[in-house]
Computed example of a mutant assay.
Amino acid sequence: MTRQRVSVDILLSITAVITSVCALGITFYQAYLQRTQQYASVIPILQTFNTSGIDDDKTGYAFVVANKGLGPAFIEAVTLDYEGKSYDDIDKLLPQLKDSTAFANHVTTSTLSKGLVIPQGESIRLVEIAGGREGSWLRRKIADRMKVTIVYRSVYKQKWRFTNQSETIDDANVELE
Protein backbone atom coordinates (compact mmCIF):
# COMPACT_ATOMS: atom_id res chain seq x y z
CA MET A 1 0.00 0.00 0.00
CA THR A 2 1.21 3.38 -0.83
CA ARG A 3 0.52 6.31 1.32
CA GLN A 4 -0.82 9.33 -0.33
CA ARG A 5 0.30 12.60 0.97
CA VAL A 6 -2.35 15.07 1.97
CA SER A 7 -1.94 18.17 -0.05
CA VAL A 8 -1.68 21.52 1.61
CA ASP A 9 -4.84 22.66 -0.19
CA ILE A 10 -6.93 19.86 1.31
CA LEU A 11 -5.51 20.51 4.78
CA LEU A 12 -6.31 24.22 4.52
CA SER A 13 -9.82 23.43 3.28
CA ILE A 14 -10.52 21.11 6.23
CA THR A 15 -9.14 23.69 8.67
CA ALA A 16 -11.34 26.39 7.10
CA VAL A 17 -14.47 24.21 7.44
CA ILE A 18 -13.72 23.40 11.09
CA THR A 19 -13.07 27.08 11.84
CA SER A 20 -16.34 28.08 10.15
CA VAL A 21 -18.35 25.51 12.12
CA CYS A 22 -16.76 26.71 15.39
CA ALA A 23 -17.50 30.35 14.50
CA LEU A 24 -21.11 29.46 13.74
CA GLY A 25 -21.45 27.66 17.09
CA ILE A 26 -19.97 30.62 18.96
CA THR A 27 -22.35 32.99 17.15
CA PHE A 28 -25.39 30.93 18.21
CA TYR A 29 -24.11 30.77 21.79
CA GLN A 30 -23.62 34.56 21.87
CA ALA A 31 -27.18 35.05 20.59
CA TYR A 32 -28.44 32.77 23.37
CA LEU A 33 -26.50 34.76 26.00
CA GLN A 34 -27.84 38.07 24.65
CA ARG A 35 -31.41 36.79 24.79
CA THR A 36 -30.91 35.53 28.34
CA GLN A 37 -29.54 38.91 29.35
CA GLN A 38 -32.48 40.71 27.72
CA TYR A 39 -34.96 38.61 29.69
CA ALA A 40 -33.04 39.18 32.91
CA SER A 41 -32.93 42.94 32.35
CA VAL A 42 -36.74 43.18 32.35
CA ILE A 43 -37.99 41.49 35.51
CA PRO A 44 -40.72 43.36 37.35
CA ILE A 45 -40.86 42.56 41.08
CA LEU A 46 -44.02 43.42 42.98
CA GLN A 47 -44.15 44.26 46.69
CA THR A 48 -46.83 45.45 49.06
CA PHE A 49 -46.42 47.59 52.12
CA ASN A 50 -48.44 49.51 54.66
CA THR A 51 -47.79 53.18 55.27
CA SER A 52 -49.17 55.66 57.76
CA GLY A 53 -47.90 58.75 55.94
CA ILE A 54 -50.20 59.25 52.99
CA ASP A 55 -49.11 62.78 52.10
CA ASP A 56 -46.41 65.14 53.30
CA ASP A 57 -48.61 66.73 55.94
CA LYS A 58 -51.31 64.08 56.50
CA THR A 59 -51.46 60.90 58.48
CA GLY A 60 -53.73 57.98 57.82
CA TYR A 61 -53.18 54.60 56.28
CA ALA A 62 -52.50 53.23 52.81
CA PHE A 63 -52.00 49.71 51.49
CA VAL A 64 -49.59 50.05 48.58
CA VAL A 65 -48.64 47.75 45.68
CA ALA A 66 -45.29 48.74 44.16
CA ASN A 67 -43.15 47.56 41.24
CA LYS A 68 -39.59 47.53 42.59
CA GLY A 69 -38.13 45.50 39.72
CA LEU A 70 -36.94 46.30 36.21
CA GLY A 71 -39.53 46.96 33.54
CA PRO A 72 -43.30 47.28 33.67
CA ALA A 73 -45.63 44.72 35.27
CA PHE A 74 -48.65 43.89 33.10
CA ILE A 75 -51.45 42.74 35.43
CA GLU A 76 -53.25 39.56 34.33
CA ALA A 77 -55.34 38.69 37.42
CA VAL A 78 -55.93 39.95 40.96
CA THR A 79 -57.45 38.14 43.93
CA LEU A 80 -57.99 39.62 47.37
CA ASP A 81 -58.67 37.02 50.08
CA TYR A 82 -60.19 38.24 53.32
CA GLU A 83 -61.62 36.05 56.07
CA GLY A 84 -62.16 33.04 53.81
CA LYS A 85 -63.74 34.92 50.90
CA SER A 86 -62.18 35.98 47.60
CA TYR A 87 -62.73 39.31 45.88
CA ASP A 88 -61.47 40.63 42.56
CA ASP A 89 -61.73 44.29 43.55
CA ILE A 90 -61.03 46.25 46.73
CA ASP A 91 -64.37 48.07 46.31
CA LYS A 92 -66.17 44.74 46.76
CA LEU A 93 -64.14 43.84 49.85
CA LEU A 94 -64.47 47.08 51.82
CA PRO A 95 -68.24 46.85 52.51
CA GLN A 96 -67.56 43.48 54.19
CA LEU A 97 -65.49 45.13 56.93
CA LYS A 98 -67.27 45.71 60.24
CA ASP A 99 -68.03 49.37 60.85
CA SER A 100 -67.09 50.18 57.25
CA THR A 101 -70.06 52.52 56.81
CA ALA A 102 -68.72 54.83 59.54
CA PHE A 103 -65.60 55.54 57.49
CA ALA A 104 -66.90 54.98 53.94
CA ASN A 105 -66.67 58.65 52.97
CA HIS A 106 -63.00 58.84 54.00
CA VAL A 107 -61.74 55.85 51.99
CA THR A 108 -60.09 56.22 48.58
CA THR A 109 -59.47 53.16 46.43
CA SER A 110 -57.59 52.40 43.24
CA THR A 111 -58.48 49.78 40.69
CA LEU A 112 -56.01 46.95 40.28
CA SER A 113 -57.30 44.67 37.55
CA LYS A 114 -56.40 42.80 34.38
CA GLY A 115 -54.88 45.06 31.74
CA LEU A 116 -53.42 47.58 34.18
CA VAL A 117 -49.70 48.32 33.90
CA ILE A 118 -47.54 49.22 36.87
CA PRO A 119 -44.44 50.96 35.47
CA GLN A 120 -40.99 50.33 36.90
CA GLY A 121 -40.51 52.23 40.16
CA GLU A 122 -44.19 53.18 40.44
CA SER A 123 -46.79 52.21 43.02
CA ILE A 124 -50.55 52.05 43.40
CA ARG A 125 -52.34 52.85 46.63
CA LEU A 126 -54.88 50.09 46.60
CA VAL A 127 -56.75 51.65 49.50
CA GLU A 128 -56.09 54.71 51.62
CA ILE A 129 -57.83 56.65 54.32
CA ALA A 130 -56.93 60.00 55.84
CA GLY A 131 -56.90 60.62 59.56
CA GLY A 132 -55.11 58.93 62.41
CA ARG A 133 -58.18 57.29 63.98
CA GLU A 134 -59.57 56.15 60.64
CA GLY A 135 -56.14 54.97 59.50
CA SER A 136 -55.69 52.87 62.62
CA TRP A 137 -59.12 51.32 62.10
CA LEU A 138 -58.40 50.35 58.48
CA ARG A 139 -54.90 49.08 59.28
CA ARG A 140 -56.27 46.79 62.00
CA LYS A 141 -58.86 45.47 59.56
CA ILE A 142 -56.69 44.62 56.55
CA ALA A 143 -52.93 45.05 57.14
CA ASP A 144 -52.11 41.43 58.02
CA ARG A 145 -55.48 39.88 57.26
CA MET A 146 -55.85 40.58 53.53
CA LYS A 147 -53.98 38.25 51.20
CA VAL A 148 -53.25 39.78 47.81
CA THR A 149 -52.43 37.50 44.87
CA ILE A 150 -51.46 39.10 41.57
CA VAL A 151 -50.58 37.28 38.35
CA TYR A 152 -48.50 39.54 36.12
CA ARG A 153 -46.14 39.36 33.16
CA SER A 154 -43.15 41.19 31.74
CA VAL A 155 -42.67 42.72 28.32
CA TYR A 156 -41.27 39.36 27.16
CA LYS A 157 -44.42 37.49 28.31
CA GLN A 158 -42.71 35.87 31.32
CA LYS A 159 -45.38 35.28 33.98
CA TRP A 160 -45.14 35.55 37.75
CA ARG A 161 -47.49 35.20 40.70
CA PHE A 162 -47.09 37.60 43.60
CA THR A 163 -48.47 36.82 47.06
CA ASN A 164 -48.08 39.42 49.80
CA GLN A 165 -48.06 37.03 52.75
CA SER A 166 -44.77 35.33 51.86
CA GLU A 167 -41.67 35.14 54.04
CA THR A 168 -39.20 36.53 51.48
CA ILE A 169 -39.36 38.53 48.26
CA ASP A 170 -38.21 35.42 46.36
CA ASP A 171 -41.13 33.45 47.78
CA ALA A 172 -43.52 36.31 47.07
CA ASN A 173 -42.73 36.52 43.33
CA VAL A 174 -42.81 33.05 41.80
CA GLU A 175 -42.26 32.54 38.07
CA LEU A 176 -45.02 30.60 36.32
CA GLU A 177 -44.59 28.52 33.18
Results as ranks from 00 to 15, higher is better:
T2S: 12
R3F: 11
R3E: 14
Q4T: 02
R5F: 07
R5D: 10
S7Y: 04
V8N: 15
D9M: 04
D9C: 03
L11N: 11
T15E: 12
C22Q: 14
L24R: 07
L24E: 14
G25R: 14
F28W: 11
F28N: 07
Q30L: 13
Q30V: 10
A31L: 15
Y32L: 14
Y32M: 10
Q34N: 13
Q34P: 07
R35Y: 10
Q38T: 09
Y39M: 09
I43Q: 11
P44G: 07
I45T: 11
L46C: 06
T48Y: 09
T51A: 15
T51F: 08
I54R: 08
D55S: 15
D57C: 13
K58W: 11
T59F: 14
Y61Q: 05
F63M: 09
V65H: 06
A66P: 09
A66Y: 13
K68I: 13
K68P: 07
G69S: 07
G69H: 03
L70H: 13
L70E: 11
G71I: 08
E76H: 03
E76N: 06
V78I: 05
T79D: 11
G84S: 12
S86K: 12
Y87C: 10
Y87L: 13
L93C: 06
L93F: 02
P95H: 09
Q96V: 12
Q96K: 15
L97F: 04
K98T: 10
T101Y: 15
T101E: 15
A102I: 13
A102P: 05
F103C: 06
A104H: 12
N105G: 11
N105Y: 14
V107S: 09
T109F: 04
T109S: 05
S110F: 07
S110C: 06
G115L: 01
I118C: 00
P119N: 03
P119L: 00
Q120S: 10
Q120R: 06
G121A: 02
G121R: 03
E122G: 02
E122F: 00
S123M: 02
S123C: 06
I124S: 03
R125A: 07
E128H: 03
G131K: 00
G132I: 00
G132W: 05
G135I: 00
S136M: 00
S136V: 00
L138R: 02
R139A: 03
R139P: 01
M146C: 01
M146H: 01
V148D: 05
V151M: 02
Y152L: 01
Y152F: 06
S154V: 02
S154F: 03
K159L: 00
W160K: 04
R161T: 08
R161K: 09
F162E: 09
N164S: 06
S166I: 01
S166G: 11
T168L: 08
T168E: 03
T168K: 11
I169Q: 05
D170N: 09
D170L: 03
D171R: 04
D171G: 02
D171P: 03
E175P: 07
E177C: 07
